[in-house]
Design a protein around this nucleic acid. Structure first.
Lengths: 214, 214
DNA sequence: CCTACCGATCGGTAGG
DNA sequence: CCTACCGATCGGTAGG
């Protein structure tokens, strides 16, 4: 019926996606409207028409990046059984999300949380909420693993979730610094150790026949 | 003899110190010359006279912040015996350095490393070098503790240093997000657990008589 | 979604 | 010829 509304939504989606990619490198404050417009081949004011202010764009960017994160990390891990298997599935999906550079600057959340952690306001609040959701998910799956006896009761689930997230986050920074993926393996091995999982080296892709296990 | 040279050094020192404080909140790219000039009550061009370009200023800021970090965290820990005691002294000094807000935005290194980890150049190289030095210091003291039997041989010293740094770094972000120091305690307890140290709650200040233990 | 602008401020540099 | 600043302004770009 109204083609303009449809086109507008598509533009907004493309802008938010481009913005998330840019923010993973330059930050949510460091990215500029001109930079986004140039990357998309549109005018700066078309972005300003879609999102009134830069803060509105930043909030939309956080929302889009959160969706991308959920799709890349959380959704795939839901195939694994609850408890320890799902925790390891989340960890492996997270490491692959970083290794595959779903965002060019590594994990969007790690980059923007440390950028905004000392800048109170709605952007920081949105990032903090996303972080709380991630930690809660990890913690709840750890708690299930602890109740079933697959994971040690010490440290408590919240603390272990904090530790796993810490190892992943710093591995992301180290990987960006060196463009080397060994920090990701280091983090994986440490997490496996802390979960009491044998430190089997991560399975390489394309060991199965094409289209095999899918 | 030449008062001007002396004055110049003092100005440079004051600018770099102010820049480190600003960068801990707004980032090394986010801080502006006008902001620094305003905070110091000097003109913008006096900063530009001291440091030719912004990148020169950023490099001087990293150097000044590194000195501050060494003075606040590393030097005090040298009083402790090598090995496990010094590792815990480094950890406690680090946590107090963050809690006392030596930099207003928490740890300068955490803030700027994640800002520059995807921006190749001399600034990133300087930050990465400071990080390597810190990890090497931690790792060498852990290795000494392992050789003396105070610290478990597993995980290896490098990995354990990576893990301790990860817990400290994420505690810094969480503390900034909430302006609550409980993440610092969480990290401290986890580190103590991983080092096999009893998780004694951190000693509160001013339990001794004024001027007592000093 | 465009061109055409604004007040302001960016990093950097001129002459004094 | 040096430094340490100043007020003013350069070309570009910020968000709106």
């Amino acid at each position: 019926m109204d083609g303009r509304r449809l086109r507008g939504d598509r533009t907004r989606r493309a802008v938010a996606s481009q913005a998330a990619a840019a923010a993973s490198i330059d930050g949510l404050a460091g990215m500029t409207l001109s930079q986004l417009a140039g990357g998309l081949g549109v005018s700066k004011s078309s972005i300003q028409a879609a999102y009134g202010t830069k803060e509105d764009l930043q909030l939309a960017t956080v929302a889009a990046a959160t969706e991308t994160f959920l799709g890349a990390v959380v959704t795939p891990a839901l195939d694994a059984n609850e408890g320890l298997p799902r925790v390891m599935a989340l960890v492996d999906a997270w490491l692959q999300y970083v290794e595959r550079r779903v965002f060019p600057g590594g994990c969007f959340m790690v980059a923007t949380l440390s950028e905004f952690d000392s800048r109170p306001g709605p952007v920081r609040d949105a990032l903090a909420a996303a972080r709380r959701g991630w930690l809660k998910l990890l913690s709840s799956q750890i708690a299930i693993g602890q109740r079933s006896g697959d994971i040690s009761e010490s440290p408590p689930a919240d603390a272990l979730a904090f530790e796993i997230d810490a190892l992943l986050s710093v591995a992301n920074v180290d990987r960006n610094l060196s463009d080397d993926t060994t920090p990701l393996t280091t983090a994986r091995n440490l997490i496996a150790l802390r979960l009491g999982v044998p430190a089997i080296p991560r399975r390489r892709r394309r060991t199965a026949k094409p289209g095999g296990s899918r």
